[in-house]
Write a protein that binds this DNA or RNA. Sequence first.
DNA 1: ACAGACTGCGCC
DNA 2: AAAGGGCGCAGTCTGT
Length: 533
Amino acid sequence: MHADPGGPFLIQRLDDADAPAGPVNAAGPAQLSLLDDDAPRWVWRSPRTYRALLAAGVRVTRAHDVELVERLLVAAAGRFGAPHGLAAASARLAGLPEEPDPPPEADDEPPGLFPSAAPAGPETLAAVVAVHAAQRRTLAGNPRLALLATAESAGGVVAEEMRADGLPWDADVHDDLLTTALGPRPAGYARPRRLAELAADIDAAFGRPVNPDSPAEVLRAFGRSGFELPSTRSWVLKKVDHPAVAPLLAYKELARLHTAHGWAWLRTWVHDGRFRPEYVVGGVVSGRWATRGGGALQIPRAVRGAVRADPGNRLVVADAAQLEPRILAAMAGDDALARAGGREPDSDLYAGLAHELFGGSAPDGRAKAKLAVLSAIYGQTSGDAGVHLALLRRRFPAAVDVVEAAARAGEDGRIVRSWLGRTSPPAAPGDEVPARARARGRFTRNFVVQATAAEWALVLLAELRAALHAAGDPARLVFFQHDEVLLHGPADGAELAAAMVQDAADTATRRLFGDTPVRIPVPGRVVTSYAEK
DNA sequence: ACAGACTGCGCC
DNA sequence: AAAGGGCGCAGTCTGT
């Protein structure tokens, strides 16, 4: 399929060998919806194609996204970061020089603005068909990568649908939250009242005007008061005994709220009761999503009360509990670690681990166990981390081996791969310098776990979306953030939808790891507001 | 005047 | 309490 925004949809049927099995046809939205009743696997160029379809009112059951898959295949072939756009992929097939990828188009940009972009219309369709066939040949020999390609494509579908549906956002509640914290909305670009008061308190404490938004000025002001500080980070300031500290900390927190998620944000990003961020599938090298604009993956807790279900509806908020250590246990086949994570839906892995490592009654056992696990996954070396990690290694050697092998690979300048085959970037020139090599070791150590967790979440999303779709959409996916999903739908279907999340999670675990004792709890709570516990 | 680096902090 | 992995964004600072 090929869809120019607003233009005709060009479609062509493929046979079992992925070759054209008929002529190119132009189809309208109604015809496309009818064709989807047979649940074909649609093949298209990029999530943009689906954006155009959704705009025309067409939703599909499943798809293969050529550009998303091409990026996976290019990296897997050892050419991380090489162009993966349709034009480049098409040129590679033809043995021609690759064209660089065009820059991402703005939403309202007419197609074809960039001369280097792929040709429009039937030629684009032919390129999609040819590149898809080549991709399928490559994937035929690699079932794990094929699963990843399917999940990545499904991610593109979910991302565009979530953007089209939007996250329910109550601007009045948001405005009330801001007014309570900052004072009334100021005219123009003036400081809100509360910030102005705190700035005055800061000036008074230093005995002269100091711009609290300027770290350099704040450092100089403390210097004159006899405090030489390494930075103005809040945890540094908290240790300083000076009257400016309290108003400065309060100012920083509120200024952050004002600039990042204040009235300007609200006006820019929330329309008609919906927040519609643009999700960038695979935007992070680990396979996590990024967003473009709106900071959707950093919605602070302070404004989550503004995320409210429509009247008569509910939100289902579900996040995977201690996802990364459980993923590590599954990857490593470390049944001891899996058992420590427990099998109950609400089991606490760190508590179970504390029992295993320190016995039941050790003080701070849970905190120490958590530190040990984070050391293993992030490569932390400071404080007691090394001691706790050694303990972890003795009890769970299989799990620790997985991350330490990844760390060694990174330090040696080699690449690593996730469980399904997402490939890390290669070492850069200069990475053999010891400090850089250690940093790269920490990166690859984390990559194997974070990237596998990301693909598990992607498979969960795909399964959940398919199950919801098949059940007639008792709820819609409206938000996804690394290990957390939000659903929105009628109140009477919310409990069912919450149960479907755990089912999708269990299916994802089996799809990736087969028969494993690892269980990943994804408890869903049915709420009216995202801020509710 | 504008671009890019840097700082600091929100989220996972 | 602090510091390990991954981001995006707003504001200041610096260089041209």
